[in-house]
Write a protein that binds this DNA or RNA. Sequence first.
RNA 1: GGCCCGUUGGUGAAGGGGUCUAACACACCACCCUCUCAAGGUGGCAUUCAAGGGUUCAAAUCCCUUACGGGUCACCA
Length: 552
Amino acid sequence: MTNKEFADFLLPNVKHTWEEYEAMYPERDLPEGAIVTRYAPSPTGLPHMGNLFQNFMSMVFANQTGGVFYLRIEDTDTSRTVENGIEKILDAIRPFGINFTEGAISETEYKGNYGPYIQTQREDIYKAYAKKLIEEEKAYASFLSKEELDEIRARQSASKERIGIYGRYAKDRNLSKEEVIDRINKGESYIIRIKSPGNFFNKIKYTDLIKGTIEMPENDIDEVIIKSDGLPTYHFAHVIDDHLMHTTHVIRGDEWVSSVPKHLQLFEILGFKPVRYAHLAPLTKNDNGTIRKLSKRLDPEATLAFYPENGIPKEAIMLYLATVTNSNFEGWLDQNPNGKISDFKFDFNKCSSSASTLYDLPKLYNISKNYISRLTKDEVYDATLEYAKVYDEELKDILEKYPDYSKAIFNIEREQKKPRKDYEKYSDVKGQIWYMYDELFEKYRDDAGYDYQSITDKDEIRNIINTYIDKYYDDNDDKDTWFSKIQNLCDELGYASNMKEYKENPDNFKGNIADVSTVIRVSLTTRSMTPDLYELLKLIGKEKIKERFNLI
RNA sequence: GGCCCGUUGGUGAAGGGGUCUAACACACCACCCUCUCAAGGUGGCAUUCAAGGGUUCAAAUCCCUUACGGGUCACCA
């Protein structure tokens, strides 16, 4: 029996040869230096922040080199695959503006010339290459049962040996074809293992794009490549797919670093050009002084749904991920306030090689706050409305009822060189401006509690606001006139209209212009901290100001 | 346990033999500014790079040991 016949016997009914598959997926026609990379999740659950980060990096490196970023579904563990897993992944990623140039687009469809992009639909391909290896005597059928495997592991562990199927433990390696055929005909189940040519005492070196040069022992483990259900293991599928799809760079979590010797060996055995690896450290957080991995169970911010739910702009998240990717991005953005992420040249050398990447929510919020402050009033209005449509009906109604008025509110101290930074997320908006709308003011003013600061005497408060509205306030005043009238009010009532004078002789006055302004501010809004008072008064208008003052 | 990786201020982090008594950002503190807050301005905030040892004229940067943190050792990905 020839090797070819033997391979046919072990893996029957394979439709194409590996040469045919090579021909079906020719080299991509891309510019020099183009990076082809992918996101390759298992449809076993929802993606988390770490995945988004990985996606962000992959997309950015592919885009800036004129390359390709595609989605491949690794569903070879059929027992863990969840229903609609692909849709769930797509839905979770969609709100963030991650764009795949090719790959799976639904449970059944894909776009691109290198598909299918779902591994269970590629079974024939993996088998074709497994047959090649069997023919070349680089892979073999192994009959080790679960019990035998457990026993070997237990023995190795007891004698403090390395664990795994290698060397003398790879006992099916040299079975004769006749014996293999005989056992299969008797109904024994088998899998295909690689016949590892490696020696544990040799070192291999590889250069990780992020972690730098790493030296590790050669792989000498006879790794499984085809499981008993006929599907490939991750290791085999990775190497075949990334070769056929002409992936140049694999950006993945660093739990894979220790598998690199296996993967590199597989590339070599198959005669493929290896991909370049970039291994990402896990995202961690500082939990009361201890650094630990971000956890979907413990940390809401690990879950992608957290962001849209809280009205955190996706652009801010991208900006944050950009600074996590290359920390010099932040400085660049400072120099180029209108710069876009796509204008920045990301560099693998600038990726942190530390053992963990801190995921810092306060920092994200800071970036978000700056981002929102740079938006125009129309953009803030639109984005807030979009958020409110899904998560805050009351806010949605009020924004839709008063579009122009709302935009005028958003425009206070906005669209200028150093804009006001009020909101770090769209869910902050209502809490900051509710008092500008009569409906909300009536509803919430009692609960809000008037936050008077230094002047708390009721009669004095009434005296200040009544004098002000009757004698001084006019909707048509410009800002300077408005301010000088506030000063006049102070002079009339015995408060210092000039802060410097007040600081020099505080005893000469009942208080100062800041105290008086605060009384007006609080009486109008209930709050001691608001945007520019002049703008607020003007927007609300004399009649309504009067009504609100009468409530005091 | 074996094998890998990491450890710089309150936080993130730059820097990979001399220009480092350590960039930058966030946080914090103080003062300044014709109203509060925000913004802005000025100044402050690691004599030291996990600890110890070594190489060198010279170390945060190279080497060794220790400690701590992370990852991995499946017919899971």
